[in-house]
């Protein structure tokens, strides 16, 4: 199955966020790489292993079996409840993000299969206002969990978020409580919940449904933490150590279960679900 998956990704035209025939400079090691090779290697640098961000649909293509994905809740969109204006109105920010991404908000949810195992999947998209969580993200997480509770199907969430969406004020903060409460119900029902932390996974999303998984997987080199490094440096007035708040650092400190490179991610999820799901999901 694993080999099939790799083969599938080899000759796929799905990672076409960057068109073929261009040259890409790796943001980490500055290696110049042909865009076709970049895409075919799942946007991971061949030379240094840098994991570039994926869009929500690229992530779904990576993890979910072909033609098994069914998207839900595409009819929910954000509103400017506070009439928030900073350097531009929130309504304009929403519109620009929607036009740039084709998404209604920073999240895609649905149902699909991972090597034949049915899952509900929650994927965040960093391109949409920094993957920030407002009311729509919170609502879609909760609806997904509610479906999983009803169908007794495991949930996988892939995080890519800078935290709560400031423009929705305390409504955003309270999405942390709302989503965590939903995960508590999932946990009580003994339905597996797995987090995949990708770059970056920080603040309000990490400190709620993003870190409450039975198993927490991180992609290599992802920034993972409650407070961003810049704010910490300003507060403590010292340079942060090399590798601080990166996946490997969190593994060392016992905060994530494993760090898994992108090409092995789907199979790792499959193996974990295979262990947890069969034992717990049907009875009780």
């Amino acid at each position: 199955m694993f080999r099939d998956f790799l083969k599938r990704n080899e000759n796929k035209d799905k990672f076409r966020d960057i068109p073929d025939g261009l040259w890409i400079k790796c943001p980490q090691c500055s290696q110049i790489i042909y865009s076709k090779d970049w895409n075919e290697n799942l946007k991971v640098c061949i030379k240094c292993g840098y994991h570039d961000q994926l869009t929500a649909y690229e992530r779904i293509d990576l993890l979910i079996d072909d033609s098994t994905f069914e998207e839900f809740d595409t009819h929910i969109s954000p509103i400017d409840i506070l009439g928030f204006i900073d350097t531009k109105p929130y309504t304009q920010r929403i519109k620009e993000a929607q036009e740039a991404t084709g998404l209604k908000d920073a999240i895609v949810v649905g149902k699909g299969e991972i090597n034949g195992i049915p899952v509900y999947i929650i994927v965040m998209d960093f391109r949409f206002i920094g993957g920030s969580m407002g009311s729509v993200v919170g609502e879609k997480v909760v609806r997904t969990v509610e479906r999983a509770l009803k169908d007794r199907i495991p949930v996988v969430s892939v995080i890519s978020s800078g935290g709560a969406r400031m423009q929705e004020g305390l409504f955003s903060l309270f999405q942390m409580a709302k989503t965590s409460a939903a995960i508590a119900r999932l946990s009580d029902a003994k339905i597996p919940y797995i987090n995949v932390l990708t770059h970056p996974s920080t603040a309000g999303v990490l400190a709620s449904f993003g870190s409450l998984g039975d198993v927490i997987i991180a992609e290599p080199g992802a920034l993972i933490g409650f407070t961003g490094p810049r704010v910490i440096e300003q507060t403590i007035k010292q340079k942060l150590p090399e590798g601080f708040q990166r996946s490997e650092f969190l593994l060392e400190h016992g905060m994530v279960d494993l760090v898994v490179e992108r090409k092995k991610l789907k199979n790792t999820l499959f193996l974990i679900l295979n262990h947890l799901w069969r034992k717990s999901w049907k009875e009780s």
Binding site: T202, T235, I236
Partner: peptide
């Protein structure tokens, strides 16, 4: 926002409380 707080899982501690 400090080094020790991050090393010992500030986000994890808060999330756990919200859930519980």
């Amino acid at each position: 926002p400090g080094i020790g707080a991050e090393e010992r899982g500030q986000a994890w501690a808060i999330a756990q409380n919200l859930k519980e």
